[in-house]
């Protein structure tokens, strides 16, 4: 009797070890390790930014991790540099870039997914190609042209330049989004007596708010993070965007303890808006790819 019970428990232990749940736990563990490696550079600036400034350059490995949450680096970075000003500039540029690119790409994306007209293929090709043109190639002629138009060192110039890569990107996301709205709804609108403009206003626009938010978030991230054009086009300290400001501030100073500590804090601060927006909207980007933008 008792022998029988033991046998049963053993076999159930074995099958438990082989069960899908246990396998999933193992795989989850491996995935966690892999993710730790991948996210490590970012995790590391986050951890370093919270270390105390005094022993920042300590050679003792035990000092590498923060012992307690110390926000001194953040205070220093925000007080000593003009990070607030630069972030304000970045915000201004990124918000206007986003508005501009949504304003022009939302109607364009709608027309490209829904209307039949001559020139549609040409328009799609221009959108794709303009995303493929490397920034560094455009940088020089754009600088020269903007200087001629007296738009260098102005946010207007930078916003226009950022739009060259945010417009194709937002159009791509919005086209994908519009494809998910059934055509029946528009057709019902026309049948019910609405003109194209009213269909856009009463039916398409309310339904595309989630798509507009996601596309806007991506446009914001791209513009906020952009370094090259901001470096070349803006040349006064007061008009720097956050990435350029951080670069200028820290290359101008020697490598002392507080410099490194501040750089870590500044890097986290600059990354935060993009990372948070991305965390919230990332599923739209992945979903866009999953919906068959790329099929084998």
């Amino acid at each position: 009797m008792s022998a029988l019970t033991t046998k049963e428990t053993t076999s159930s232990t074995v099958s438990w070890l082989r069960s899908p749940q246990v396998k999933a736990m193992w795989l989850t563990l491996i995935a966690m390790l892999a993710i730790l490696v991948i996210t490590f550079p970012f995790v590391w600036i986050l951890l370093s930014s919270l270390r105390s400034v005094e022993n920042f350059l300590s050679l003792d490995l035990r000092d590498a991790l923060p012992r307690s949450l110390d926000f001194t680096s953040y205070r220093l970075a925000l007080q000593r540099s003009d990070l607030f000003l630069w972030m304000g500039n970045s915000l201004f540029v990124a918000v206007l870039t986003t508005c501009l690119s949504l304003l022009v790409s939302a109607p364009a994306a709608f027309a490209l997914t829904r209307l039949r007209f001559r020139g549609k293929d040409a328009a799609s090709i221009i959108l794709v190609l303009s995303y493929a043109v490397p920034s560094i190639m455009l940088a020089i002629p754009l600088l020269v042209l903007l200087v001629k138009m007296r738009l260098n060192n102005s946010f207007i110039g930078l916003i226009l330049v950022h739009a060259t890569f945010t417009i194709p990107f937002t159009s791509w996301i919005l086209q994908d989004f519009y494809r998910s709205i059934p055509t029946d709804l528009e057709e019902a609108g026309y049948i019910d007596g609405a003109s194209l403009v009213r269909v856009l206003w009463h039916i398409i626009l309310p339904l595309s708010i989630p798509g507009l938010l996601a596309a806007g978030a991506y446009s914001f991230i791209l513009s906020w993070n952009e370094f090259l054009f901001a470096l070349i086009l803006l040349n006064s300290y007061d008009s720097f965007t956050a990435p350029v400001g951080v670069h200028a501030y820290f290359t101008a100073r020697g490598a002392d303890e507080s410099m490194w500590a501040q750089l870590m804090a500044a890097s986290v601060i600059v990354s935060l808006p993009s990372v948070l927006l991305f965390a919230y909207f990332q599923r739209y980007l992945i979903a866009g790819f999953l919906k068959g933008a790329v099929k084998g």
């Binding site: 057709e187 026309y190 007596g193 009463h202 309310p206």
Partner: peptide
């Protein structure tokens, strides 16, 4: 003549109700 000026009513296979409008708003839209 575009559909909005043909004075027809069309009932779609999937009904094509406007998801962001109430029943009353849907019926009242035309």
């Amino acid at each position: 003549v575009p559909p909005q000026r043909r004075d027809t009513a069309f009932v779609f296979q999937n009904y094509a109700l406007y998801p962001h409008m109430t029943v009353a708003q849907n019926i009242g839209f035309p």
